[in-house]
Write a protein that binds this DNA or RNA. Structure first.
Lengths: 338, 338
DNA sequence: CTGAAAGCGCTAACAG
DNA sequence: CTGTTAGCGCTTTCAG
């Protein structure tokens, strides 16, 4: 029931000229007389005219909307990436429509369908943890609709993406633990289908090797990316005959959950168990002891993803480019024994 | 450069019938023969037809978009409210466009302008902390465009809103502190123009009174809602000749910042200073000691706001209704001395 | 039972 | 210098 907004027609009628004259006047068309232009602009200003984006959309077949799908909204990581995306999108005169897959494959598919119906011009997506079938993404590619992945990616070679340097980051955490005296280093991974799980796991294994340690499969745990599952994984680790003396987890959620369990079972951080996370959370600073963690350039990740997106809109056949962003290991008390 | 999508025209041509026949067939118009309907629907299915929302929008003058403006995106509180809004909006076939004011009045005004240009059908807004001039909101109301506020509100009597029971929540924290032995209870408030500052402050004062304590203005601090400012406020409190033995802050950010300062200056929580927050953060559980806090029903706040919004779209002249949501004081170790 | 035509707001090619 | 017209995709009278 929105009150009818002012249209070219109204201005034209009021000025006693044709619609096209007004349209041209508004964009300083050389054919229109200076005074006419002045009169048109003045009235448009008074009436607060702004072009109807749907009419423009019909004409140009574009909605100026980008669909963004994230596994969840309430995680700092994703909110922060979205902020970055929005900044760039708004600079380009685009709006962003955000939907959350809630880590569900079905929801992810449904979101894509909905956004497609809404005629978004393209997508920026982070896979749900359940996603291992990529046909819904293939479909987007086949429709020649711009698509960019960030953080959790797939279809390399077909779809541009932005990721963190997961391998190197995981390796450096492992080395750091070892340098600080840890010998039984554990890693709580995520679902195998996710690149972030796989890459960080490889980094961990490489780190173990580079440290001259032996790999013990009991120290490689896995969880779904929710607190309950992470707590269970931590409990497994801590109930081993030789529990780990250092743990790092695939992300924030996991590490915070691990911390809770460690405390509950009476272990101390970092005296008994060192801890480090993959996170950009400012809460890493609030917990006691402050958490060593891999800082992600989250805002930048969003900005880069959006820029890749706009490159794609210019040329849908662009060679897909994968950007890998440098992370930074921030060492705090949770991984340093005095 | 989106590939042209299938339109009624294409189906009509392929079937050798007119556009209107297809249009009617798709919605089971009684005038169309069963077999025609079947043929139309079949082809539409194969071709994956979906109506162009912009064409529909032009016809009905509606975009099915709601503009949501929040002070920031990366706070759990706001992401969580947004989740609630999106759930309800999607159920109604609406999309949500989120913009962040970054706590800036000017940005808030600019966001409104942009969303108005994008022809959102209405707004759900949480004021920026700088906002004390409400003319941009008045403008929305005057245009008869639906507007709902949540958490930080203004223009009561003109605009429907959802808030927490700030007064009662603040009062109950104060009483709880006192019952646990605190006598010098401090409160770190926010900007005076915000209703949440004012209401929680009143609750605090009432709590002091109800506890039979005397009010000391030094224990009433104020800050902008950012960590730096909150840290400064905490330092002020702690440098008093008689520093407080209990502090609560207007929100998460403030309390986490306070916690950091308390630690840095060598005080202990809760032995020297009890602490409590206004928060729904799951991180309240992660910090050590776990934080006593007022749980906000954030998701519900979003859902209620969205429902109010849709009531307004049905009848823009609805009597503005203010919904106050109950919060719950969750007592944890940060405010209990053993 | 089906088609033609107008109209939603706008632009651009074509006429004057 | 300005107006007319067609068309973007769709619904909805009005005419068969």
């Amino acid at each position: 029931m929105v009150k009818k907004r002012i249209a070219l027609k109204d201005i034209a009628k009021e000025l006693g000229v044709s619609i096209s004259t007004v349209s041209r006047g508004l964009k300083d068309h050389p054919d229109i007389s200076k005074e006419m232009i002045a009169r048109i602009k003045e009235l448009a200003g008074i009436r607060n005219y702004s072009p109807n984006p749907m009419a423009m959309g019909m004409l140009r077949q574009q909605t100026k909307m980008i669909g963004v799908i994230v596994p969840d909204l309430v995680t700092h990581f994703f909110s922060s990436v979205i902020s970055g995306i929005e900044e760039v999108a708004n600079d380009h005169g685009y709006f962003v429509i955000i939907s959350s897959s809630n880590e569900s494959f079905n929801k992810e598919c449904a979101n894509i369908e909905n956004l497609l119906k809404a005629r978004v011009e393209g997508f920026i997506i982070c896979l749900s943890q359940e996603t291992s079938d990529y046909s819904h993404f293939k479909k987007i590619v086949d429709m020649e609709i711009p698509l960019v992945f960030f953080d959790r990616v797939c279809l390399k070679g077909e779809v541009p993406s932005v990721t963190a340097d997961n391998f190197e980051a995981a390796r450096s955490i492992t080395l750091h633990f070892n340098e600080n005296g840890a010998r039984r280093i554990a890693y709580i991974s995520g679902p195998d289908n996710l690149n972030i799980s796989e890459e960080r796991k490889r980094g961990y294994l490489q780190g173990i090797k580079d440290s001259g340690l032996e790999f013990h499969h009991e120290y490689l745990e896995k969880c779904d990316l929710n607190p309950t599952s992470a707590e269970k994984a931590t409990e497994e680790l801590l109930s081993l005959p030789f529990p780990p003396d250092a743990i790092f987890g695939i992300n924030d959620t996991v590490v915070f959950a691990a911390m809770k369990v460690i405390r509950r079972l009476g272990f101390r951080v970092p005296e008994d168990i060192m801890l480090a996370g993959f996170t950009d959370e400012f809460h890493a600073l609030v917990v006691q002891p402050p958490l060593t963690s891999v800082m992600h350039p989250t805002n930048e990740m969003g900005r880069v993803a959006a820029n890749l997106f706009f490159k794609l809109t210019e040329n849908i056949n662009l060679l897909p480019k994968s950007v890998e962003l440098k992370t930074k290991l921030i060492i705090r008390e949770s991984s340093v024994r005095k």
